[in-house]
Amino acid sequence: MQPNTSKIKQYFFITCLAILFYAGSGFAQQIKGVPGNHLQLPTKAFNISFRWLGDTVHSKWEPYTAILLPVKLRNCPKTFYLQFDLGHPSTILYKNKMKAIAARYPKAVKLGDSASLHHFAFRLGNANLVATEISVQQFDTTGINWSNQHSMEIIGTAGADLIDGNAVAIDYPARKIRIAPSFTEKITQGISFSKFIYARRSVLFPAQVNGKQTMLYFDTGSSMYELLTDKKTAEQMAVPGAPVQSSQVRSWDKFITARTIEVNATISLAGQSIPIHAATYMEGMSSAQMEGMVKMGIGGMTGNKLFLQYRLLLDTRNSKFALIPSVKNVHPRRIASAKQK
């Protein structure tokens, strides 16, 4: 039995909302710096073929609720998965899953009473990685379904430390991610890059939402949302007479209501104009929190769903990005494998 990824994601989702909504009130200045990056990546480019995880949302099947990255552990034959979530600054492991793996394959995981593992080696895609320190956190009590060799067991979250200081190509149509120290000159020639804000391992894209200039927080863990914004903006873009669909999102000790409505709008960024069909706003946040977000020029959050027909190039070292329609066939394998300078 695999973990309820919707519940796991809600924890990170609300954390992101808190950062966004309190940004104008000075709360963000009180947030401590992100943890150190303890991931040791290869010095050359490596590839990851990912899988989509689907789930039922608003009584309908949503095939793009999460990106899963295949991971292998030493001395364990089974393939596990990490959820790719740039909304979380650091890669973490789920304690309940680690306990189950350690019980069956003690040489794969040496799990004690500590809240972290040290010098943890694993294989991600076609590369060997080492985490000199990685947090182990408890989210639920589910174990590993060993009887089903095809079960997709999610044992942790791959956070923004995976792309920190690197050049990353997310090829959504081909379901591939390529990570390298830098882009080649070949890929930069003829492609127009735009600047974005990269701070505390968070990605903020400059964008126009229905012609209005703003900033959008990018979170690969929020796959199901084309646009998460404030109520006023969502209602302004709404299709006349469109029904509002509601769902509950847990925020610590209370529930917040997510309202999703059909819209007829576009988001323009990196020289591309992308139509969107739904916008979501949250009820339960105070008006002061929403005003703080607006004052900071943050118009909302977007996830993978917006880019399903694109290749997204992110250079976190130089804070620039490009968005390439799939028909142009610019493949992420053109990323350099040169060492970091």
Rank of each mutant, 00 (worst) to 15 (best):
Y281E: 08
S6N: 12
A100G: 11
I197S: 09
H118M: 08
M237F: 03
K176D: 12
K195F: 00
K254T: 13
K110L: 09
D219W: 08
A265M: 05
D164T: 07
K231T: 05
L162Y: 01
F255G: 05
L216Y: 00
D164G: 04
K78Y: 13
V130A: 03
A338P: 09
S286V: 05
P89Y: 04
G271L: 05
L117R: 14
P106M: 07
S287Y: 00
G24P: 02
K99T: 11
K339E: 13
K212L: 04
K295L: 15
S319P: 01
G271T: 02
V203A: 02
K32C: 05
L20W: 01
S273I: 03
S268A: 13
T91P: 06
L68H: 04
A265Q: 04
D55E: 12
H58N: 08
S6K: 11
H150Y: 13
A322E: 06
S194L: 01
Y217S: 11
I177W: 07
D230T: 03
N318P: 01
K72N: 12
I177V: 12
H58M: 03
I19T: 08
N318F: 08
I170G: 03
G54L: 04
E235M: 13
G297W: 05
R51I: 09
T5F: 14
F12L: 09
I335P: 02
K341W: 07
S246H: 12
L162K: 02
G36R: 08
G26R: 09
G54N: 09
A18K: 14
Q189I: 01
S90M: 07
V263Q: 00
V294Y: 02
Q10M: 10
S49K: 11
G33I: 00
G303P: 02
E62A: 06
L20I: 11
Y22P: 01
A242E: 07
T43Q: 11
D113W: 05
A322F: 02
I31K: 14
K95Q: 11
F84T: 12
I191C: 06
A270R: 01
S25L: 15
L314V: 05
